[in-house]
C-alpha cells in the first residue's frame, strides 16, 4: 500500500494553507511530518482522508484516487488519530474503540466487530480499563484508546496528528514504539505529524519538513541538519550522533529570520525551546 500526494493545495477561505504539496509514502514506512505551528501539518493530514476537501491536487491510496472513493471505503483504508478531542458525553474505552469499527459494520456492531475490539484492547494492554470512562484516564492511556480506535479497523494507511505532544516521556516512547511496530509488522503506511525532532529522528523512516504550507525538504532523518532546522523553525541547533542515531540539540532561537521563516518572525521571536 502506498500513499501518493500530488500538487495538493488547500485554503481556508482566502488564506492559503497548503500549496503544491508532493509527497509519497510506502507501506511499512513511518513518515514524520515536521514543521512549526501553522505550517500546515494538521491540515495536510486532514486533507489526505477528506476531513478537509483539497482545493486542488490528487491523493492516491494504492493507486485509487481518494476523491473517487466512497467515504466508507476511504474510512476502511485510512485510519486517523486526532490531536485532541473532547466528547460531550462519557464513553467507555470499549465503546470508544468500537467506534473504529463503524466503517466495517452494518447499522449495529456485530460479532466480528466485538472480537476485533477485544483483540485491540488486549494488544494495547487496556483490558483493565474496558468499562472505564475515557475522560477519567491518564493522557497516555487516552492516546492509546484513540490509537486503538484507528487500529481496530485495520487500515492500510494510518494518520496521526501529534500523538505524543501531550504525553510524558514514557508514554511518548510507548506510543511511538507501538505505532512503529504496527506500521512495520502490518505493512501499514504511517504518517505522523510530530513536534519532537528527536522522536522523529528516532522512530520515523523518513521525514518531511513543512514550511508555510510547502514541503521544504523530504528524506531520511539525515535531512535534519542545522541548516534545514534553522530555515524551517528559525532555531539554531546542533546535530550530534549518539549510538548511530541523530540527536538534535536546540541552542537558541535564530534572531535574524531566515528566508523560510520570515513570515513567522514577530511573536515567535525570542522564544527559546530547550530540551
Amino acid at each position: 500500500m502506498t500513499l501518493d500526494v500530488r500538487d495538493l493545495a488547500f485554503a481556508y477561505g482566502d488564506e492559503s494553507v497548503l500549496e503544491g504539496v508532493n509527497l509519497t509514502a510506502e507501506s511499512g514506512e513511518l513518515l514524520g511530518l515536521l514543521g512549526p505551528n501553522g505550517s500546515g501539518k494538521s491540515t495536510l493530514l486532514q486533507s489526505l482522508n477528506r476531513i478537509h476537501e483539497p482545493d486542488a491536487g490528487t491523493v492516491l491510496v494504492d493507486g485509487d484516487r481518494v476523491s473517487e472513493l466512497d467515504r466508507t471505503e476511504l474510512a476502511r483504508r485510512v485510519g486517523y488519530v486526532p490531536q485532541d478531542e473532547q466528547g460531550a458525553f462519557p464513553a467507555t474505552v470499549y465503546e470508544t474503540i468500537l467506534q473504529g469499527r463503524r466503517p466495517h459494520g452494518g447499522w449495529s456492531p456485530g460479532r466480528v466487530d466485538r472480537a476485533a475490539v477485544e483483540g485491540t484492547i488486549e494488544q494495547l494492554d487496556l483490558a483493565a480499563f474496558t468499562s472505564r470512562n475515557v475522560a477519567d484516564l491518564s493522557g497516555g492511556q487516552r492516546q492509546k484508546v484513540r490509537l486503538g480506535r484507528a487500529l481496530v479497523g485495520d487500515p492500510s494507511v494510518l494518520l496521526l496528528d501529534e500523538p505524543t505532544s501531550a504525553l510524558d516521556l514514557k508514554h511518548q516512547l510507548d506510543v511511538m514504539e507501538l505505532v512503529g511496530e504496527h506500521v512495520r509488522d502490518r505493512g501499514v503506511t504511517g504518517i505522523v505529524a510530530i513536534h519532537d525532532l528527536n522522536l522523529a529522528a528516532r522512530y520515523c523512516d523518513r521525514v518531511a519538513l513543512l514550511s508555510n504550507g510547502e514541503i521544504y525538504d523530504v528524506g531520511g532523518p539525515d535531512v535534519l541538519t542545522p541548516e534545514t532546522i534553522r530555515a524551517v523553525y528559525g532555531v539554531e541547533a546542533t546535530v550530534k550522533h549518539h549510538r548511530g542515531r541523530r540527536l538534535i540539540v536546540t541552542e537558541r532561537s535564530a534572531r535574524t529570520p531566515s528566508v523560510a521563516s520570515a513570515a513567522h518572525s514577530g511573536p515567535d521571536d525570542g522564544r527559546y525551546c530547550t530540551r
Binding site: 482522508n49 466508507t72 474510512a75 467506534q99 463503524r102 466503517p103 480506535r149
Partner: peptide
Amino acid sequence: DAGTATAKSLG
C-alpha cells in the same frame, strides 16, 4: 460524539 474530524475520518 467523538468530534467532527474523527467522525468524518470514520466515514
